[in-house]
């Protein structure tokens, strides 16, 4: 990447934490508690009632965050919509799978229609009447980083504002599956959606600069990749004020925080970490840069570097 500077000018997250419509949330955020639940905003303020009834959790979260971002950034239409999702629309997928295996005769199509991975991006374009580039990336734990990289390409190609985000939803069977497959998740499985406006323009709304994003599938050496990434951005690990990590901490950085404890576990939780970082960079002037080191799945590495923007 490393071409023209890119800025985050809006951010919105629905999660199991008080993130939505709550700028400065990073200051007082503790780990996801034992009694956690998704904290839903008043969706009726963002989505027409008839549509809302048919929408699954992941769709509601995504559309509300998107509309909130567009309002925050003070833009009319984004030039493009780019979404990442690890597992897609699980609620509707399971519902249609169940229907198709148990119901004879004519099946109701709504859950099939809403089962495709690009339903979020499609519903966002529908709800705001957007005719731009519309893309959905699904590379399990790196889905969000891939979306962010695509958004960066678009801005380098001349777009000015891209709506980029990620969403994944929890359904009950996931707890059973992770147990049966003996996955050690380390924190509770949760749902979450985070959307951003990524802009080529530094505006009054700018929260942080996106300095770089890098993805490595089938990674051999996480430490080497991280050092090389920081080096390309003129940094060494000792220069990093804060690392938000999933997997292992980055040795040598001033501070390491495991972000899954804050967000809970879902494939695109690194999008939560990005919002947390952008929020923190605005609130705490002592933090100048944040590295998000996503090795939620150890064979996949996502690196995202955020910098403070000088006033």
């Amino acid at each position: 990447m490393n071409k023209t500077a890119l800025y985050i000018t809006a951010a919105s997250t629905v999660s199991h934490q008080p993130t939505f419509g709550n700028a400065g949330f990073s200051a007082a955020l503790g780990p996801v508690g034992a009694d956690h639940a998704l904290i839903s905003p008043d969706y009726k303020a963002y989505i027409e009632a008839g549509l809302l009834r048919r929408m699954s959790k992941i769709l509601r979260m995504s559309v509300a965050c998107s509309k909130e971002c567009i309002a925050q950034a003070g833009i009319g239409q984004p030039d493009a919509i780019v979404v990442g999702t690890g597992l897609g629309c699980l609620q509707d997928t399971e519902k249609f799978l169940n229907t198709s295996l148990t119901v004879e005769g004519l099946l109701p199509p709504t859950s099939f229609i809403q089962s495709t991975h690009n339903t979020m991006a499609g519903q966002i374009s529908l709800s705001i009447g957007n005719h731009g580039y519309n893309m959905t990336h699904t590379q399990n734990t790196l889905s969000f980083e891939h979306a962010l990289l695509d958004a960066s390409l678009l801005l380098h190609e001349g777009d000015r504002n891209v709506l980029v985000g990620a969403a994944d939803e929890h359904i009950d069977i996931l707890d059973d599956i992770t147990g049966q497959l003996a996955f050690e998740t380390g924190a509770a499985l949760t749902s979450g959606a985070s959307f951003f406006i990524l802009s080529s323009e530094n505006t009054a709304y700018t929260m942080a600069e996106l300095a770089d994003v890098h993805v490595v599938g089938g990674v051999a050496g996480i430490q080497e990749e991280t050092d090389a990434f920081l080096g390309r951005n003129g940094l060494a690990t000792k220069d990093v004020d804060l690392v938000l990590f999933a997997g292992n901490p980055v040795d040598g950085a001033l501070k390491n925080v495991p972000y899954l404890a804050l967000s809970g576990v879902y494939a695109t939780a690194s999008a939560f970490a990005l919002h947390y970082a952008a929020d923190l960079l605005q609130a705490d002037r002592g933090v100048r840069n944040v590295l998000i080191c996503n090795a939620l799945r150890e064979s996949n590495l996502g690196l995202t570097l955020l910098r403070t923007v000088e006033a």
Binding site: L87, G88, N118, Q139, S143, G217
Partner: peptide
């Protein structure tokens, strides 16, 4: 373990020995 779309691509990458930028798009 083969459900998620990304894993179908990772399987292909592994068989071909490709690492680095491995991505899956899903727009129906």
């Amino acid at each position: 373990t083969t459900h998620d779309s990304g894993s179908t691509t990772e399987r292909i990458a592994r068989e071909l020995g490709i690492t680095g930028y491995i991505n899956t798009l899903s727009t129906a």
